[in-house]
Every structure is written in structure tokens, then in C-alpha cells.
Design a protein around this nucleic acid. Sequence first.
DNA 1: CGCGGTGTTGAGACCTGTCAAGACGTGTGG
DNA 2: CCACACGTCTTGACAGGTCTCAACACCGCG
Lengths: 239, 239
Amino acid sequence: MIEAHLKKLRKRVNISREEEEAIRGAMSEVREVRADRTIIRRGEELNTSLMLLSGWLARTRDLATGQRQVSELHVTGDFADLHAFTLKRLDHNVITMSPCTIAVFPHERLVHLFERFPHLARIYWFITNVDAAIHREWTVSLGRRSALSRMAHLFAELLVRLEIVGETDGNSFEFPLTQQELGECLGLTSVHVNRTLQELRRRNLIELENRRATILDLEGLHDVAEFDPFYLYLEHRDR
Amino acid sequence: MIEAHLKKLRKRVNISREEEEAIRGAMSEVREVRADRTIIRRGEELNTSLMLLSGWLARTRDLATGQRQVSELHVTGDFADLHAFTLKRLDHNVITMSPCTIAVFPHERLVHLFERFPHLARIYWFITNVDAAIHREWTVSLGRRSALSRMAHLFAELLVRLEIVGETDGNSFEFPLTQQELGECLGLTSVHVNRTLQELRRRNLIELENRRATILDLEGLHDVAEFDPFYLYLEHRDR
DNA sequence: CGCGGTGTTGAGACCTGTCAAGACGTGTGG
DNA sequence: CCACACGTCTTGACAGGTCTCAACACCGCG
């Protein structure tokens, strides 16, 4: 079940058999969680980190007005809160956007893992830095791209990230978010999400139906989004 | 000169004399840079990281339209591109917003430093994760807060960050950005920045004059911004 | 003294939000 | 099996926030 995560790592760097086994050994248990549950609450003390074996998670913040902003989406193979390893409390909630299978990694085991394999410590530090790069790209989207471009960018990003872990079928993938939740990622109201989606459809760029997204014209989508996957740091490096 | 950086670290965690000396020893040289210089270009290969001893830096991204978005501001004592230690190439530019004094830390020395003091490795990992938390807060601002609230939030954040490193004078601090540049942080045009600033002044929350910002009503500012410094992870922890 | 960058102001356009209502689909209880 | 409730999607009319364009004031500096 941890295969997706290993795929994601190996896309970037070499992982030995020994390291792989050590990572597996650091996992303590696996939990199933239903959709729309808050699995981590902002501010609570954490001594584990959670790896998403399947499903979708979101990092969210609630505002006084009742509005909510998603700062990142997580898919199969992602460590949802690896940053909790150093932060100990998170500044955001983590909620399930679909039914999820989640593996628990106690921090004490991670400490041991990283002592034994400093190489892995560096890799996981790298991984949290890629998360930060994704945050920056969302900042650029929210600050400077139009609703249409922003939405196109998100779908382009998700296609790449899902491809890495084998969760795509050609240019199509499951997309469990409601339009309301999509708006919470993009800083839009659900009404405007609806209209923007129609525009993407009208331009024959994307189809979204029955919780499944299909990219009809990848090049066109990238053009609208001004998408460049560089920030996902996909190139492979030897150590 | 590195005192500000040590203050910032010691605000969060204990640093021994020995560790302090080791950090100092990892520095290779100090450079002076004029305002409005690009000191790191997106995509270029890096084998050093830069600590800001004084001045202001910004992480920026340029778009095809000629627009620019700032994803984070750096002040005295910040490691501007510590994430380059694991990423090796950055997805953004780093530019000076004022004359700057910058200390260079070769990655090979950091490798050595972190091998000798795994505790410091954890701390610097923590520091890059706080940077990511700042990104998330900006995402919330850009996605959900009004121009007024967003600007108030930025000044509230900067006051806290500058206080830590002793760069404030009461509720006042030097603020070298032009209104254009401020807009590049907030996802606004310079025209709207101007009007929003006037509104903050009109409400007696902030004064901005001669490149110096003064918070006139901190509580009022926090209210408008819905500011909670939790995401800056200021509480002190023993190891 | 003139120039370029910065700050300021006004008018109008446009993008996105707000409010409200109805359509559709799915699950639940009677 | 039907009736209903609820969440989601869709649409329309209108409001409001922010942008665009343009002009001018101000100021430091060569």
C-alpha cells in the first residue's frame, strides 16, 4: 500500500532496499477514515505523522466569517503532515475529502529512522520543501491568475501529481471534491466555480462529471494556466 | 552580524555555545548588495545558501504578462534560501528590496555542520517549515481576505518578525518597499494599494511615511487582519 | 534644471461576489 | 415503491471590489 509513496520518492531519488524496509518498519498502523472528517485539528499536539495510502486530504483554515481556505490538497502517496515532525503543532486542519486509508508514523520511529539513514532525513526535508514550493505556486495563482487560469493550473498540477503515483487513466482521474470545496482551494465562491468550470468545458479543455476529471486538451490547459511543472521538482537526482 | 539570526533561533529553541560557534564557522563570506538586484535566479544551480544579515529580500515569480508575485519577504536574520540546501534549484527568484548585507553558507559546510550537530539539522528543517507556514498564511490572505485585511495582516506579521530580531522601534519599523512592490506581495495593483493604505490611515491603524511604517493601533490592526501569530511558531521549546 | 520613479486621484470597465430560486440526484423512512 | 429531505449543481439579476487607463503632483538626484 506504501508503493505509491515509494514511487513518488523514487521519481526524485534512489531508495535502497534497506531504506525501503526501514520506511515500512517505521509505520505503526493503518486506519480507514470516512469522507469529511477532521483528522488533525489546528493547534493540537502531534507525535505522529500521517501518510495517505489512498484518498484525498486537504489542509484547511477556517476564518471568523465561516469561510474556509484550502492551502494544499494531498493525494495517494503524500505524507500529509510530515512537517508536524518538526513543528509538533500545525497551523491548519487536515480533513478528508474522500474516504481515506492512512498509515501512521510515530515521530519517535522517524527519529530513529533518520538517525540510521541521514540520507532519508535529507529526502524528507526535501519533500517538505516541495510542499512549500506548491504553496508558493498557489500564492502566485491566487495573487495573479484569473479564476479561469487558476482553475486550469490546479487541474494541470493534479494530473502531474496523480500520474507519478499511478492514479490516472490517460488524462483522466477521480476528483472527489464538490464545487464548493474546489472554490475553497481557488479562493472562489461555488457560484463562480460553476461558471468557470463551464467556461473550461466550453473551451474543450476539461470535462468534469461523476467525480471524475478528464483533461481534453492538455496543451490548451497548460497555455491557459501558464503551467510549468518545474516547481514540483520531478527530475531525478542521484543522492 | 549573525546575532539577529541567533536571536531568531533562540526565540524558539536552545542553541549551545558550541553550536553557535559551528554556525559561525559554516559562513564563508559576507557580501554587500545594492537594492533591486536579482541575487538568485529561478532555476539556476545553487551550492550555497544565503543568510540576510541586514536589509530586505523578496522571493518573486514573474508571469508572462509582466506581472510579478512575491511569495515571501525576508528580513534581517532570515535564511533566504535555506530550502536550496535540499532543492538545489529554486522555483523563484530572490531579489533585494533594499541594500543588503548577506552571508554565504556553502552547502558542503552545512552538510558537515548537520552531521556534527543533528540537532541543528532538525532546527533548520523546522525553520524551512515555518517558512512554509508563512506561505500558507499568505494563501489564506490572498484567497479569503479583503485588500484591507490582507494589508493589515502583512504589517502585523512584519511587526512580529522584526521585533524578534530587534529591528523595531516600539511599534514602528523601516519599510523600504514601494507601493508597487507592496502590491506584488498582496496581489494588488499599486493604485489599489494606494487607496487601501489611505483607508488604513483614515482608520488610524497605520502610518507609512518616508519608508517607515508605524502601527498606531495594534489591536485594531489585528482585528481588521484577523491576525493570530500562531503560524509563526514563536513559543520556545527545549529540544 | 530636468528627468524618472513614486505617489495620488478620477472615471469607467470588468471580474467576481451576493442573494435567491429552482433543478437534479441520492439516500432514507414510511 | 413512493414521498421527502438534503446536498449539490445551475441560473439570473444585481452589487461591489478591484483593475485599467490616464493625468498630474511630488521628490530626489544627476
